[in-house]
Design a protein around this nucleic acid. Structure first.
Length: 422
RNA sequence: GGAGGGGUGGCUGAGCGGUUGAAAGCGCCAGUCUUGAAAACUGGUGGGUCCGCAAGGGCCUCGCGAGUUCGAAUCUCGCCCCCUCCA
């Protein structure tokens, strides 16, 4: 969330920013008004508390000098003050809670470099694969190869679940290991294997709750959520912690399954493996010094791009416009891989700088070289989301005979297999 | 699930109703000493928030929440987490 002080000092900028992100629930004026009210109340409550504290110390002094001294008058006075502020204290707590809730619906400020109108293609790598036959969509390729079983997936769990068999399952596993190894060995990330179920505090910390709560799988009985991305547990690693400036940046990479209800998602664009309730993803998360987060966003994005390049997949990098960005992000690049069978671009990675927006909720701070405690900046990016990467591989590397060539970089992870055949 | 033990500052660990935001040690920072370093010695060293131009001051904070009290790290109740033993 944003700093209340910042909101109150820049209400117009915050409003304009929220409007740009289509956040109609951001009630900026109300925040400013409530904050004023709260400060007044706080002052009066604190003054009363001071009086009570002074009287208590008086009594302590008197009792020490003479245990039998009569302090009933002072006790009565203090009690009266206490009774008097009881209501104000309750009001203040209610105000604070309301203020906090309101602030949770105000989105992060976007960076000046973010376009307002439409997404901007920043770069394109590779070229569209050429076929002397009509390229098939991945669900046909997968079915014919016997590695993708949509009917049984539906039997087990319902629509939009994935069931991979044989080489399909192996391909999934190979990709996970390939991506993790790349980020760990070449890009300097530390591997994390976190819980896939987290509590409400963690979901609030990274901002999925309250805004996206309906899109999350929840175990009511235990008040636990299935993670929608590794971002949640990994970014929460340092919740309520003060790091040291010399350990920044902290870079983690993490494989997890991800669970999303995709409530209200249209059947359009959901065919096959495009949008499923449970999918694998390798995520990168960074905690950085505020002065360094913008350059760290660039390297994070390049780290994700390298996965696509090593796999030889044609992709483009999009700089998202204000309207397409997430609630918590200050700047986001999307990486889209080309899927010839579907004849469209598929989002395989989203790399964002959240500046101090998450860190403030998480209370993840660091002690700077000047001794001051400040909020870190948090970043994350997919490196990559698996199912759509698999789509891209199947559709780009398909052959006329229905087989699929395995990208060179992946072969050692598949026991040397170079072609998937029936 | 049952029975115990425990959650205190960066760490170890005292405190168990009163000037305790919290002893002591370690660590860290600064200074003295030294050619330099180490050792020794001296001093400093949590976070949040509010008022204030500042200096400074107030309030909150000893797992979380409620309560008792003039006053709670200390007492009571509920919850969470960790450890040990039993099933």
């Amino acid at each position: 969330m944003l700093d209340v002080k910042f909101i109150c000092e820049n209400p117009d900028a915050v409003k304009k920013n929220a409007a740009g992100k289509n956040e109609r629930r951001a009630e900026v004026d109300k925040v400013v008004a409530l904050n004023e009210q709260k400060k007044k109340l706080q002052l009066s409550v604190e003054e009363a508390r001071t009086k009570i504290n002074v009287i208590s110390k008086d009594i302590a002094g008197l009792k020490k000098a003479d245990p039998k001294s009569d302090v009933s008058a002072k006790q009565a006075e203090s009690r009266a003050i206490g009774d008097g502020i009881k209501k104000s204290e309750e009001d203040m707590k209610a105000l604070e809670k309301e203020l906090d809730t309101l602030c949770m619906w105000i989105p992060n400020m976007v960076h000046a470099s973010v376009p307002v109108k439409s997404n901007r293609t920043e770069k394109t790598w590779g070229e569209k694969a050429k076929f002397d036959f009509k390229p098939k969509p991945h669900w046909e390729i997968g079915k014919e190869l016997g590695i993708l079983d949509e009917e049984r997936a539906a039997k087990l769990s319902g629509s939009n679940f994935l069931l991979l068999m044989g080489a399909g399952a192996a391909l999934e596993r190979a990709l996970i290991n390939f991506m993790l190894d790349l980020h760990i060995r070449m890009h300097g990330y530390k591997e994390v294997w976190p819980p896939f179920l987290v509590n409400r505090d963690s979901m609030i910390g990274t901002g999925q709750v309250p805004k996206m709560e309906d899109d999350m799988y929840k175990c009511e009985k235990d008040e636990l959520f299935l993670i929608p991305t590794a971002e949640v547990p990994v970014t929460n690693l340092h919740r309520d912690e003060i790091l040291s400036h010399d350990q920044l940046p902290v870079c983690y990479t993490s494989y997890t399954a991800c669970f999303r209800r995709e409530a209200g998602a249209y059947s359009k664009d959901t065919r096959g493996m495009q949008r499923i309730h449970q999918f694998d993803k390798v995520e990168m998360v960074k905690f950085t010094h505020p002065d360094k987060s913008w350059e760290e966003l660039e390297t994070l994005t390049v780290n994700a791009e390298e996965v696509l390049e090593k796999l030889g997949l044609h992709y483009r990098r999009l700089l998202l416009s204000t309207g397409d960005m997430s609630f918590s992000s200050a700047k986001t690049y999307d990486l889209e891989a080309w899927a010839p069978g579907l004849d469209k671009w598929l989002e395989v990675s989203s790399c964002s700088n959240f500046t101090d927006f998450q860190a403030r909720r998480l209370k993840t701070r660091f002690r700077d070289a000047d001794g001051k405690v400040k909020h870190v900046h948090t970043l994350n990016g997919s490196g990559l989301a698996l199912p759509r990467t698999v789509i891209a591989i199947l559709e780009n590397y398909q052959q006329a005979d229905g087989s699929v060539v395995i990208p060179e970089a992946l072969r050692s992870y598949l026991g040397g297999v170079s072609v998937l055949k029936k």
